[in-house]
Nucleic acid binder design. Structure first.
Lengths: 231, 231
DNA sequence: GGCAACCAGATTGTTAACAATCCTGTGAGC
DNA sequence: GCTCACAGGATTGTTAACAATCTGGTTGCC
């Protein structure tokens, strides 16, 4: 307790009580994914300790875990910082996602129940509405929901774990890609194709469709790269 | 030092000086991969401390990292143990490897230099000799070298990292699969196909060949499963 | 005026002690 | 004879202090 009413530093820290390792991990990971921490930004242990009211040991363990997840990098005696993800690396990540989510789509096509199919078609409808009304925020959100739904239906733990890891590294670029002119309508069609083929129960076709969709994202990333170099 | 000449416990511990976290990680990981630690076996911190002459903190950090790698599991206040990998999980892992190594094969087909091609063909020759002479140990070793060579040529860091992770989890089954009757000759032909298509520079075909090869391993695993259930 | 050595502050890495929790063996009671 | 409760030992989790390293600014010298 002592001096309880310290001015809480910015950034939605934890409430008040003591926090554990997992909570620090989640807080920092979300902070990085939401862009509250910039790439390359230092993450001094002391700051995290006071932010989350956790012990230094807990913070230290959390940083080690985040380093293992690939979103934080540490140098000996020089502390931790948010690992910058280059566009080349984002391309690699998306390529890996392409084949892994392709696998999930194939499994999902075989395993999907009628309830799963309803859910997918519902998401497809939501996505259509979002694109037609130009709501990029919702588009981006439902986009993720579609991918996650396919993953869940596939029930492939191994691929799911790997995809979680990849997603946390590349979210930063998701928003940016969705802002490319014409991207939402392209993405919409591709998602609808994925949903259709998965619902049709055609494993091979579902895999191809999902694969093609994510390779299309790779193209968009490269296009983004070109745009940035022009500036 | 005190009583220096304690009878060194079994299992190739470290030499004598103090060791760091990374060394403990490597030692325990190798121990698990080589089967010196059985699945489900407990890994008390004290034992690891005395085995590797490391501090408890270092051992603790190492265990956290191994847990993150998925080869060790920990329960609160109940310590760490070697995570058992079920056959179903091994199948999942191999399926994930199939698509990721397919990706690498495609990249390798495009990127391979003439030196790379020579190296691959050389490995193909070694593998042929091993199979013809019935040397399963060498077969298994060169087998891994082929896969690793393709990965290196692909130079796909993301896929490489994920594959490292998957390999450490599933090595246990590699030997066993190689022991199935007729498996080496089937594997040999598939590997030669992979090498040929990669050297031919045909990305799509290389991907398909690698994919088919690992799905054949999945079949072998399922066959193994059936054999075990018969007993 | 510019450059190199140096010192102080801050930050990280490591070790050791303390506290909490769990497992095993023993004994009393039914 | 069997089950349940209980204590002792062992193992893990957590916290705090100590030591080593790095960063930035200052001073002295050329």
């Amino acid at each position: 307790m002592t001096a309880g009413g310290e001015t809480a530093p910015s950034g939605t820290p934890t409430d008040s009580a003591s926090t554990t390792v997992a909570e620090v991990v989640i807080a920092v990971r979300d902070g990085i994914m939401q862009g509250r921490y910039a790439p390359g930004q230092r993450l001094p242990e002391v700051d995290l300790v006071s932010l989350h009211r956790a012990s230094r040991g807990a913070v230290r363990t959390a940083l080690a875990q985040l380093e293992n997840e690939g979103i934080v990098e540490r140098e000996h005696n020089r502390g931790a910082r948010v690992r910058p993800i280059s566009l080349d690396e984002a391309v690699e990540i998306t390529e890996a996602r392409a084949v892994l989510e392709g696998l999930c789509a194939a499994k999902a096509a075989v395993r999907a129940t009628s309830g799963d199919r309803d859910r997918l078609r519902e998401l497809g409808a939501e996505l259509t509405v979002a694109v037609e009304s130009g709501d990029i925020m919702t588009y981006s959100k439902v986009n993720q929901l579609v991918h996650h739904a396919v993953r869940d239906i596939a029930a492939h733990t191994t691929a799911g774990t790997l995809l979680d890891r990849l997603r946390t590294q590349s979210v930063r670029y998701h928003y940016t890609v969705a802002l490319l002119p014409g991207r939402p309508s392209v993405g919409l069609r591709e998602h609808l194709d994925v949903i259709e083929t998965v619902c049709a129960g055609d494993a091979d076709l579902a895999e191809q469709t999902m694969h093609a969709h994510l390779l299309s994202v790779v193209s968009a990333l490269r296009q983004l790269d070109a745009s940035l170099h022009q500036w």
